[in-house]
Design a protein around this nucleic acid. Structure first.
Length: 259
DNA sequence: ATGTCCTTACCTTAAGGA
């Protein structure tokens, strides 16, 4: 089972690039972030015609997540528990049954800038809510995949210029500590499980020639429960999509599970 | 180098977010 995460930065803007990538990469499941669309406006027919089931958790203008899957999506839930009044659409879950049943959680973690400030407070509070959700799911002892745009640079080797990020919400010690707390629950970060080397990124800013200079950061991650980690066969970053026509500023990251 | 892109709205230009 090939499961991907891809922050598309607007479904309207990616209406050509996303289907092209799906045709070439052919993931079984893909979690999308920043669809920037309400559910009714998401062009589901395009993806249904390609054989995908579509579940969205949208929002006007900002945020919004979705799951596309060739296999049926079961027990779909929307929203991250822990704050009934949070209007931001950043979390969706569904179960996909292949050889094994896999619970897939797609997430768009808050950016948090500027820090300090209310946006950073929201980021850290959201990460605490996510930790609670992971704690609630782990006792099921099932394959779980938490994938998405984490807006966290885990380590210095995940940035081309780490010194440029020291005051940024994506790299502040409290952000990285909260990310490590997720790993400490027993989750495996898929990319680092197969590739320990520096120089691998998933995001290049549109500004300042970041792509041309390879000034990137790695912020799109797939975290696996022990039962999912046991099934991990591969994890790759589809870097080439950043050089395509009208690209997102993020590229897809995917895993292959024996599931 | 605050150098780009995406979205929306008081919509042919600016603002907020990233």
């Amino acid at each position: 089972m090939k499961i991907a995460t891809f922050n598309i930065n607007g479904i309207k803007a990616r209406i050509e690039a996303l289907p092209e990538w799906l045709e070439s990469a052919r993931p079984d499941v893909v979690c999308l972030q920043e669809i920037k669309s309400v559910d009714e406006a998401f062009p589901r027919e395009i993806f249904e015609a390609m054989g995908y089931n579509v579940e969205t958790h949208g929002q006007k203008s900002f945020n919004g997540v979705a799951i596309l899957s060739r296999l049926p999506l079961e027990d779909v839930t929307r929203g991250l528990p822990g704050d009934e009044d949070d209007p931001q659409a950043r979390w969706i879950e569904a179960t996909v049954v292949g050889k094994r049943a896999v619970r897939v959680c797609g997430l768009y973690l808050p950016n948090g800038n500027p820090a300090p400030g209310p946006k950073y407070d929201y980021k850290l509070a959201w990460m605490a809510r996510m930790e609670a959700r992971v704690r609630a799911l782990l006792p099921l002892e099932e394959p779980l995949v938490f994938c998405g745009d984490y807006n966290v640079i885990p380590e210095a080797k995940d940035a081309a210029k780490p010194e440029a990020w020291v005051t940024d919400a994506l790299y502040l010690p409290a952000s990285r500590a909260a990310f490590r707390r997720l790993l400490a629950l027993g989750l495996t970060e898929a990319f680092r499980a197969v590739q320990p080397a520096p120089g691998h990124y998933s995001f290049w800013d549109y500004q300042a020639g970041a792509w041309e200079r390879n000034n990137g950061i790695r912020i799109d991650h797939l975290l696996l429960s022990p039962q999912a980690a046991d099934l991990l066969l591969d994890c790759q970053i589809d870097k080439a999509t950043r050089g395509g026509t009208k690209p997102s500023d993020h590229v897809p990251v995917w895993i292959e599970l024996d599931a």
